[in-house]
Write a protein that binds this DNA or RNA. Sequence first.
DNA 1: GCGAAGTAAGTAATCACTTACTTACCGGCG
DNA 2: CGCCGGTAAGTAAGTGATTACTTACTTCGC
Lengths: 217, 217
Amino acid sequence: MLKHLFNCEHTGRMSGDERREQILRAAVALFSQKGFKGTTTKEIASAVGISEAMVFRHFASKEELYRALLDAKVSGEDKPVFPWETCDDLKRAIEDKDDLAFFYNIALEAMKKHQEDVPFMRLMFYSALEDHSLAEQFFHEFVSRVYDFIGGYIAERQRDGAFREVDPKIAVRAFLGMMIHHSLNNLLWDKRRRLLDIPLETAAKNFAEIMVNGIRA
Amino acid sequence: MLKHLFNCEHTGRMSGDERREQILRAAVALFSQKGFKGTTTKEIASAVGISEAMVFRHFASKEELYRALLDAKVSGEDKPVFPWETCDDLKRAIEDKDDLAFFYNIALEAMKKHQEDVPFMRLMFYSALEDHSLAEQFFHEFVSRVYDFIGGYIAERQRDGAFREVDPKIAVRAFLGMMIHHSLNNLLWDKRRRLLDIPLETAAKNFAEIMVNGIRA
DNA sequence: GCGAAGTAAGTAATCACTTACTTACCGGCG
DNA sequence: CGCCGGTAAGTAAGTGATTACTTACTTCGC
């Protein structure tokens, strides 16, 4: 019957690995919506369409399922791709020392990713509030690289005499604050009427201009 | 025995109103630490030192207790005080049209409050994630007034020709982003080693300078 | 002595997790 | 080719603990 060729669609028996990832996907969606305590193992099972016992065949406990899911998101196969590794516009901005383009492209790429992976953002936020240790690991592996990269560019431009003397880390925090806060507003108040409903490009452009030039005329 | 004069300390019988507020205080601490689903009514009761049934004499349900607590925090007796109503330095900055002082004092006052009432901040973030409707009410009553105030100042300075033409709302979001993101970092990673550990005054000063002048030399 | 503060001991529902069992798949042997 | 047996996928029906919430009762203060 060649069922195994279509096992991503049919509802019958499935290989262990596929089922495991199916459970993980359902768990991500549910945990990110309702948090760890707010999600039940029964909900996860019926979201996949299997019995609750199958969840516990693949994961020893609800906690382990949560850890596996955070671990996959944080350091898994689809490792976090940093914008400066893929975005040609950003590479060109660095070469040309085009400060506005530098901040614009970072903000745009970051906010695009936030918008694409809302469940991941919510998951990080939940686990930070709920004090799961993997969130700390993430912030010290991923975020500190972001600080180093942007801070490194700022330090270089300071040596050029193009930027005034500020602690680069504080400048990075200010800039990250603009874009993360904007993403956060969008994902938390998504379905409701927003205080500020603008295209990502407009936001990125304005944040870059404020970062470089401020709002003084 | 005049026990009623000391009823905030003794462990015996207490008046209804006092007990009610005692329950609310304990609930704030617990809900803000572990979220709505993560906190049990039994925990709240034993934190106060009473039986669980007493919680349900004062509040019809756990949900109603949570709503009462959010309501008290958001629109209760200690109404949110806006920095421009109390801070003389800020009033003077507005009169003098001292832009740096304007942003500095707002950032400083706001971040001070965030630091003083961490439970309130955590409560807001939890209820935003958990989609409690009172968080929406808060953000449209409180935050929109902040947008109006800061945005109003920016618009005035644009008419003066002192600020360039930007959508004031975007500028407000950028500025709020810097300070809220900084407060968030502090409260989420409080006990652990931080990426950036600086006094509030330093942060406020740098955020104001970036907001007004950017980082260009 | 009456009403309000207070509790012990429940309730049914739900939680994470287990046990005992059944079913489908697949490779190898006759 | 067929059939067979081991193994892994799958489930129904539980487990005791915990949940939010109640009831029936007691105790204190004015």
